[in-house]
Nucleic acid binder design. Structure first.
Lengths: 317, 317
DNA sequence: AAACACATGTCTACCTTTTGTCAACATTTT
DNA sequence: AAAATGTTGACAAAAGGTAGACATGTGTTT
């Protein structure tokens, strides 16, 4: 029974991120949803109602006016939202060579609030901000426009010395937990291509690899996230054992050149036929190495979906 | 006889986290459960009653009103919760029909099933087992009698070479996520003593520190989990900044003697008045150092609550 | 450009229902 | 005797509801 009216006001506010006021006024003015009532006049919403309110919330966050979109059907809302998602922008950008990063004020303010929470070591607020961001802008934009920027900014501030090490640790830990819960274990169809995401030996920072795994998941891939610091042989072994279509590696530390290059070449040699995607803050330092070994360099997380679809399509030849 | 009524009020409050008052009023107003009575009118609950109360507790925490959900069946409650709890998301993809009350709820068998799941790289089953274990035996025993033994066993098998590195990584990652979720749920009362949990510089394995943090939380402490690999100065700084009543450190790698000892002594010198608890697989190797610096050695996680209560009580003098 | 109307989220005032907690007192268990 | 448990009634805070005002944009008209 997906359409039974069972959910109270509170649940709806939690799940949609809208306030009671807004929900009521949307009902009153635009008939956005039509909840049932208990015999004591409390509203009761269905799963579908919640879904619809969530869509409306996202659409309004993207700038559409509620009055205009309230009469639309759920499907119309979905296409409306997808047209403005960063992924769609990127794929369209292929046709028109003008990939202007859309000024995403919502995401920017969200990032700012998260950074504030980090600076004041308030992990509860940080978690809540992240959850709100997911509700407000969906998973893709959460990953590419909120969490990725946050981690970059934290990295910069760390190397500038603007951020205490303890803050950085706390933030990383909270974000690790948050991403872990998002990382629902692959519900992708059986035939979906498999991506192995991890970090080479000596590289302990795992957020990048987790982001890569999640991005691939929402691009429809099956992913295997293996945690950080995995020796080359193990990476290769896992990739073969699960017949992966690609391997994603995240590199954060620039130091340790010899070990890292060795590991990368080992992986490449063990997996000559499998595309290797390499990203992370320190990956830029290894651009020549990456090119030399025929791997792909992930310049931005937002570009990863495109790279993945290239891989799947080229496989057909 | 899984349905015999032989649990007293006290164990029910401990297992469910509900107060006596709440449990009674849920029974009176909503017939949430119907315990039997002793001949002297004391309530007696069954395992099923406890599970039901736990489900109700989780559902109310998610925003559902008790009056509406109290009439639901256990199965309905499960689906209600499973739809959207962060923990349940982890296993959602697994779409296996809900296991009909695990036949064997002893800690040993649970550990065994988890180890099997690890060996077959089945992260879905692993999380499901952990969730079931939490329901069946409560958070404390989950930590001390399931997860702690699992990690020890995994460590042993890793050093024996019985377990592939990839398996160990996958298991660690899944458990890390699981513990992280438990951790974020819990927020403590204002006046509670504060524990800072982390891992010294060079020590990257964080599960031990997370377990310590969670154990302290369920002993009523406020905890600050800082992630692994934190330099001594930062640990001391965080402890002072949050006026911690204790600091817990987890040590896994035996190597690196010089660095580790240096770090430990630095911490001790910076925090002369704050009790230091040190545990983890490699802590035994440092017993003499630990004694020398006046720190406390956590031989087993199960002993930690007692150590914590010693600290709080000795503070009154 | 100024004036105006409309759109929209937020807020206040005030009422009802729901729900957790508590006090007071009795009984049983340890 | 002290701790734990039970019953009852009362209470306060939380959650929900309606109605209407208000501030702020945004677009249209003059």
């Amino acid at each position: 029974m997906p359409n039974e009216k069972n959910y109270t006001m509170k649940v709806v506010t939690q799940r949609t991120g809208l306030t009671q006021h807004t929900i009521r006024v949307w009902e009153k003015r635009y008939d956005a949803v039509t909840p049932e009532r208990t015999h004591t006049n409390r509203r009761l919403y269905s799963e579908d109602d919640i879904e619809r309110l969530l869509l409306l919330h996202r659409a309004t966050t993207q700038g559409h006016s509620i009055g205009r979109i309230a009469p639309l059907s759920d499907d119309e809302l979905k296409t409306l939202i997808n047209e403005h998602s960063p992924l769609a922008v990127l794929t369209k950008a292929n046709a028109t060579p003008l990939p202007i990063t859309p000024p995403d004020t919502t995401a920017e303010s969200s990032v700012q609030r998260c950074l504030n929470a980090i600076a004041s070591m308030d992990s509860n607020t940080l978690t809540r901000e992240l959850m709100d961001a997911e509700i407000a802008m969906g998973r893709n934009r959460l990953l590419t426009s909120v969490i990725d920027p946050i981690m970059n900014r934290v990295g910069e501030m760390w190397s500038e010395g603007t951020l205490r090490v303890a803050d950085e640790h706390l933030a990383t830990s909270v974000i690790r937990t948050f991403l872990g819960t998002l990382h629902s274990n692959n519900r992708a169809p059986q035939g979906a291509p498999v991506l192995v995401a991890t970090t080479p030996a000596g590289q302990w920072h795992e957020i990048g690899a987790l982001l890569a795994s999640l991005t691939a998941q929402s691009a429809g891939w099956n992913t295997l996230y293996m945690g950080p610091n995995l020796p080359a042989e193990e990476i290769a072994g896992a990739a073969i054992a699960h017949s992966a279509s690609a391997v994603a590696l995240s590199i954060i530390y620039p130091g340790d050149d010899s070990l890292l290059s060795t590991e990368l070449f080992k992986i490449q040699r063990a997996l000559p036929a499998i595309p290797l995607l390499i990203g992370g803050r320190a990956a830029a330092h290894y651009k020549s190495t990456i090119n030399e070994m025929g791997a792909m360099y992930i310049e931005q997380l937002a570009l990863m979906p495109e790279m993945l679809s290239e891989i799947t399509s080229s496989n057909f030849y």
